[in-house]
Nucleic acid binder design. Sequence first.
DNA 1: CCTCAGTAGTCATAGATGTGAGTAGTCAGA
DNA 2: TCTGACTACTCACATCTATGACTACTGAGG
Lengths: 189, 189
Amino acid sequence: MALRHAVLAALLDGELSGYQLAKAFDVGVANFWYAQPQQLYAELTRLEQQGLVAGREVVQESRPNKRLFHVTDAGLAELEAFTAASAKPAFVRDDLMVKVQAADSVDTATLIDQLTERAEIARARVELFEALLRRLRGDRGEEDFLRHGDRIGPYLTCLRGVAFEQENRDWCLRTVAVLEERRHTRARN
Amino acid sequence: MALRHAVLAALLDGELSGYQLAKAFDVGVANFWYAQPQQLYAELTRLEQQGLVAGREVVQESRPNKRLFHVTDAGLAELEAFTAASAKPAFVRDDLMVKVQAADSVDTATLIDQLTERAEIARARVELFEALLRRLRGDRGEEDFLRHGDRIGPYLTCLRGVAFEQENRDWCLRTVAVLEERRHTRARN
DNA sequence: CCTCAGTAGTCATAGATGTGAGTAGTCAGA
DNA sequence: TCTGACTACTCACATCTATGACTACTGAGG
């Protein structure tokens, strides 16, 4: 049950509508979770029923009204409790890993394509996250921001996002290189 | 539906019983997936019904009989199809990230404890994976093994495991350092 | 003798996550 | 004028993943 906490954490940045939240959780900004709009609307409804978030209707002209949500005191307490509870360590769990695990029994060319594609995606995400980092810290240097900025939470998670995607990319490229060399070696024999 | 393929990929290394598989998927060896025994037994049953794995009963004295499973040709074909299908990119999705995202609104000491504990776990896993790598490549050097070894799949995924856990550990320690410095700075004011 | 750990597995259910389809209006461009 | 994209949200279902509770036997150690 962590999507609920991810939503709470995301709402700490300020009031958001379900739709805006969905944007944030979709590819890109959400470097620490991912969810689809439907899940978020459902989660917001539950959170509101339990009094952990509160919404207010904003009437708009020329587009549908929306509801902006913010975290209540009860919500903050819930986050506090969540933080205190021990979490089990996360691991990779990536389909691509499964494919590579089977590399010796499976068509190499297909695998190389997938890895190459993934490396490119990872590269793009590194750039995206780095842009986000720049935006978060404004004109300050990183050290300065981390020492004296307020709201460093998103910055820290984003740092992890960058590191993860970089590692991701490096591993994909390295794996491609290995597979390619083996293919050539075998072709020669 | 990837646990099924993870099981298939794991069985490529040779015949395993459900129990042995469970050991492999529990903390440690399974650097690319995680599952509990019950899930694996259920998955094996399904895979056998669909003819993707086949089991044979091994009668044992002084301990319960077991069934050893291996991947069938149909299973290999299924893995091939799975490899060809595009996978959506994986992301981090770690409870700890959610906690750090909320770092500015949550008790710092608790968070530091959690991060420190996690760093230690990550360190231990790095060692575990590195031992596994040594075991896999035997007395060969890494380059040599990757070029000429057979069954490099598990080695490649394990390399990723090491990189992931190292990055994990570094990030935890860095984050602890940042949080600690901020705590001291605030205490002074 | 009793307890605990290990081997080998089953059953049932709860909880989390993902997906397809649908509503309803606005606005920009071909 | 029609199409497609954007805002904003809902309903229902399917699938995937996790957990608790159990059975049954063996062997080691206190």
